[in-house]
Write a protein that binds this DNA or RNA. Structure first.
Length: 426
RNA sequence: GUGGAUGUAGCUCAGGUGGCUAGAGCAUCAGAUUGUGGCUCUGAGGGUCGUGGGUUCAAGUCCCAUCAUCCACCCCA
């Protein structure tokens, strides 16, 4: 009856061989965001359920069926965060960032939770990195938010990212379009799929992104919003397009791109790539001019984007091996005999204090096995301590790539290896 | 939540129509070389055949259930 304990469904371990790639990506994300003037915000992994119900939208799939929600011991209704924008906005309001210089340019990177059926590129605990510009209404903000992740994708070696772009209007023009959609779909309501019939009442925009053949056939060309955007939204969209053109960012205007979160206004966009299965969206976002107010702040325009780390890693793996991201040791200290092993222990400590990646044998392997181990640990140098070296206060140092070796005094080890690493680039 | 496929060693997989102690490659460890890695050779360790039931003289093999993984739907990151 003893059930084998494994990682829960939809979760996974990043093992040491894979961690190098993850660290590389995380470093790249932070570096890129900070270069653009964004600063990190870290919010709790759980929040009051109400934040997501109000922020993300009660009628969304996320809130209706994908949240990890539970009562804590104090009777509070708690939800593991399914996305990062609502928490960031909550923190923005709670800490009065509106009273400081705007826009607030924030980024985050961390785990999110959604109770869904796992699949390639889809997990119950997954990771997102994202950025939010809070307090800027200009199309420049939208353009920066769209372009920055593209730089990250590029640096990761992800190729052929397609940017889908749309505008879904604002409270001034969206209602009229919504009405128009209802009118257009009304005659074919009976031919729509079950979920679309529900969408017709609750959120007619979602009718647009249903992929089922019956729904597509029922109304092959639904009216687009572009003829109906209010002057402000129209100008914003044109401005954004002009800016993207200036940056050389290619995009596809996709009038069916609606996205599943309720808070979006005006701009919505999504990044898609091939080759990673049917979950081909590696990121997406949009403008959410009403969310700050919804979370209790003053009306404040904002735009943001979130990208899936797992899917990025999947896409990057298509073009790169993991090995190139695995760090190696600067030096492995081989010892023969107990006295030498103790000295190796001391020396490893000294090397580490000198800023080198150093390790030594702590299980009493033979010389040959230690050499093999050093090779596997990708050590650039091996320092050998035998009886002779020990007596003379020296070490035999071997360059593992060339096989050359010389005797030097133990005091010179760190500088010798440090110089060697300077020569090798790094 | 729905449908399909799969589940044998750490990894990748062999094991026609049920039949003796369940195999290979890679990986691990050791030896060949008692002071030297990558190549080669030799050997060793490692499996309650996902789990639980059933059919049978006999189940890795057939049946049912369950769990997990993968794929598609859905949705999105």
């Amino acid at each position: 009856m003893a059930v084998e304990i494994v990682a829960p469904r939809g979760t996974f371990d990043v093992m040491p061989d894979d961690a190098g790639l993850w660290q590389f990506v995380e470093g790249l994300v932070r570096q890129t965001f900070e270069k653009c003037g964004y600063r990190e915000i870290r919010t709790p992994v759980f929040e009051h359920t109400e934040l997501f119900e109000r922020g993300v939208g009660a009628a969304t799939d996320i809130v209706e069926k994908e949240m990890y929600t539970f009562k804590d011991r104090g009777g509070r209704l708690i939800t593991l965060r399914p996305e990062g924008t609502a928490p960031a906005v909550r923190a923005f309001v709670e800490h009065g960032l509106a009273g400081r210089s705007l826009p607030a340019k924030l980024y985050y990177i961390g785990p999110m939770f959604r109770y869904e059926r796992p699949q390639a590129g889809r997990y119950r605990q997954f990771h997102q990195f994202g950025m939010e510009v809070v307090g800027a209404a200009s199309p420049e903000a939208d353009a920066e938010v769209i372009a920055t992740p593209l730089a990250i994708f590029g640096a990761m070696g992800i190729q052929d990212v397609v940017v889908n772009l749309n505008s879904i209007g604002c409270p001034a023009c969206k209602p009229a379009y919504r009405q128009r959609l209802r009118e257009a779909y009304a005659p074919v309501l009976g031919r729509l799929c079950e979920s679309c019939r529900a969408r017709y009442d609750r959120n007619p925009l979602r009718l647009l992104d249903c992929k089922s053949d019956e729904c597509r056939a029922a109304l092959p060309e639904p009216p687009t919003i572009f003829g109906q955007l209010c002057p402000e939204c129209g100008a914003h969209f044109d401005g954004l397009r002009r800016l993207l053109d200036k940056l050389g960012v290619e995009y596809v205007i996709n009038p069916r791109l609606v996205r599943g979160l309720d808070y979006y206004t005006k701009t919505t966009f999504e990044y898609n790539v091939g080759g990673i299965g049917s979950q081909d969206a590696i990121g997406g976002g949009g403008r959410y001019d009403g969310l700050v107010e919804e979370c209790g702040g003053a009306p404040t325009p904002a735009v943001g984007v979130a990208c899936g780390l797992e899917r990025c890693v999947l896409a990057a793996r298509a073009n790169a091996s993991d090995e190139q991201y695995q760090a190696g040791l600067d030096v492995f200290i081989v010892s023969m005999g107990d006295a030498a092993r103790e000295r190796a222990f001391e020396l490893a400590h000294e090397m580490r204090c000198a800023g080198l990646a150093a390790d030594f044998d702590m299980v009493g392997r033979g010389l040959k096995a230690q050499m093999r181990y050093a090779g596997k640990m990708r050590a650039r140098f091996v320092a050998i301590l035998g009886d002779e070296e020990l007596a003379a206060g020296q070490a035999t140092i071997k360059d593992m790539s060339t096989g050359e070796q010389t005797r030097i005094s133990q005091g010179e080890l760190a500088t010798c290896i440090g110089a060697g690493s300077a020569v090798n680039g790094e």
